Amino acid sequence: MRRETQNILLLLFGGALLKIALTGTYLRYVKASLLPWLVAAGVVMVVLAALAIARDVRGDRVAGEHGTRSPWLLALPVFAIFLVAPPALGSDSVTRDSITAPAEPAESRFPPLPPGEPLLPVSEFVTRAVWDSTGELNGRTVHLRGFVVHPQPGVTRLARMRISCCAADASPVVVNLEHPRVADLPEDTWLEVTGELRPGSATDENDYVPTFAPTELRPIEAPKDQYEY
């Protein structure tokens, strides 16, 4: 690979990395705590590419030579990288990936639920529904936020994707929605639902997917950070 090509590719990747980091679209791919590392990596790549290009240009002027300019055409794809960004993982990923039971927490004692009607992460709701032997969720009204998935006819679920580091290790966390209106909702519709757990609904037969009975369904905008951790 020619030096010009290497420099252009380095500039392209560094610029793309900075673009997704500084515009917030990085949250579609990695967790929020990795932002400083992304910015630092992007800056280093751009600076190294700029220094290499400047050195090559000075070298050409001193030698009085004019190298081929065709590698610079590789700069054109940068526009595609800057303008096109894949969305966060959604219903297609939930349908494609298998649902696994949440692992038992290292500490089986759950802290008390906040007073009132708390907004819970879907992953916490599912983990409590499966492992909290105190039954603290039973009879409690809570709020959940997620997107709609129809894995099969007659079944509607509220889902979130949970990641440890990045979208590559994402796994779906889901609850069944028990409400007559949910069957007509388009997939990937974001909702805030208010309601209660159906006690005993998470069993080995249904892969420990609990049932949530909403009393209220409210469409919402997709959050900036669509993953749970």
Rank of each mutant, 00 (worst) to 15 (best):
R96K: 14
P118R: 03
K19C: 15
R2N: 13
W72K: 05
L83P: 01
L74I: 07
P86M: 10
N7Q: 14
V84C: 05
G64D: 08
I99A: 07
V44M: 09
A50T: 10
K19L: 14
I53E: 05
A85E: 12
A63F: 00
L9C: 13
A32C: 00
K31L: 12
R109L: 13
P112T: 08
A54Q: 09
A63Q: 10
Q6S: 12
L18R: 10
T68H: 11
S33N: 11
P71T: 07
V43P: 02
A103F: 06
A16W: 15
P112A: 13
P105F: 07
P102F: 09
T68K: 09
L113P: 07
V84Q: 03
V84E: 03
A63H: 01
I20Y: 08
D60L: 10
I8P: 00
L17R: 01
G90W: 02
P102A: 10
E107M: 14
E4R: 15
P87L: 09
L48V: 11
R3Y: 00
L12Y: 01
H66A: 10
M1I: 09
L38D: 01
E107Q: 15
I8N: 05
R69E: 06
R96A: 14
R28M: 05
Q6P: 00
S91M: 04
G42P: 00
F79K: 03
P121L: 12
A16L: 08
F110H: 07
H66S: 09
A63R: 15
L74E: 03
V46Q: 06
G15E: 01
A106F: 09
L120Q: 12
R96M: 11
G67D: 14
A106W: 08
P77L: 09
G42R: 04
A106C: 01
A16P: 03
L18D: 05
R96V: 06
R96S: 13
W37R: 07
P118V: 04
Y29G: 02
L22K: 07
L38T: 01
W37C: 05
V43Y: 02
T95S: 14
L120K: 12
N7D: 13
G67P: 07
L89C: 07
G14R: 01
T5I: 10
K19M: 13
G116Q: 11
S33L: 10
L12N: 02
V47E: 09
L27N: 01
M1Q: 08
T23Y: 02
R3H: 00
G90M: 06
P102H: 09
A85W: 06
G116I: 11
L38C: 03
H66Q: 11
D92F: 01
G64M: 00
D92L: 12
T25G: 04
W72M: 02
M45V: 05
A41S: 15
R109S: 13
P102S: 12
S98K: 15
L119D: 11
R58A: 14
L51A: 15
E104T: 13
A16D: 08
L119A: 13
A52L: 08
